[in-house]
């Protein structure tokens, strides 16, 4: 288990949560969400002792996962990228279909939100393509928009 998340690393909290949510459903997604969180966390702060302890613990965990798994998508990042792109698109298309069928609920908000974060994690493989960048922004905007409408009792357009 990880030590408590230092406040300065709050920005990576949701990616770690998404990783936990996928531990049983899709360990490849969990692995890359945590790798993204680690990489981003190190960019935010790798100097303070509390952040260093957090990063080292997360690194230990990822090394252990990689040693123990025989998943090609974890060992080969090209395969991993394809896996993550397919999965993110699947979540995005589910939310988009629900949206276009005017089925608005918390599940659709969560799916758009998760898709947006999964598109974020694709940056561990390099610069995002134009299409993915477009979907990433759209998914985040849609999640916020439908959430706001549901909260205010309005019907999303």
């Amino acid at each position: 288990s990880l030590p408590p998340l230092p406040p300065q690393l709050k920005a990576i909290q949701h990616y770690l949560k998404t990783a936990t949510e996928h531990d049983k459903r899709d360990p490849v997604v969990s692995y890359y969400c945590r790798l993204y969180a680690l990489q981003n966390g190190m960019e935010i702060d790798k100097k303070s002792p509390e952040c260093r302890v957090f990063h080292v613990t997360l690194m230990d965990y990822l090394e252990k996962v990689k040693k123990e798994t025989d998943s090609e998508a974890v060992h080969n990042e090209v395969v991993g990228q394809a896996h993550m792109e397919n999965y993110a698109l699947k979540v995005f298309l589910y939310a988009d279909n629900e949206d276009r069928a005017s089925r608005f609920n918390k599940n659709v908000v969560k799916s758009f939100y998760t898709a947006g974060m999964l598109f974020d994690t694709l940056s561990v493989f390099g610069e995002l393509s134009e299409d993915i960048e477009k979907n990433r922004k759209y998914a985040k905007w849609k999640a916020a928009y439908i959430h706001r409408c549901l909260k205010n009792g309005e019907t999303p357009v």
């Binding site: 190190m42 690194m59 990822l62 090394e63 040693k67």
Partner: peptide, 28 residues
């Protein structure tokens, strides 16, 4: 000053170690 220098060197060594471990993890 030498203590500060040593601390800085130690801190940067630890930072490098983290980055190196990350790079190694991705090549494993």
């Amino acid at each position: 000053p030498s203590t500060v220098g040593q601390s800085t060197a130690a801190a940067s060594g630890e930072q490098d170690e983290l980055s190196q471990r990350l790079a190694k993890l991705r090549q494993m």
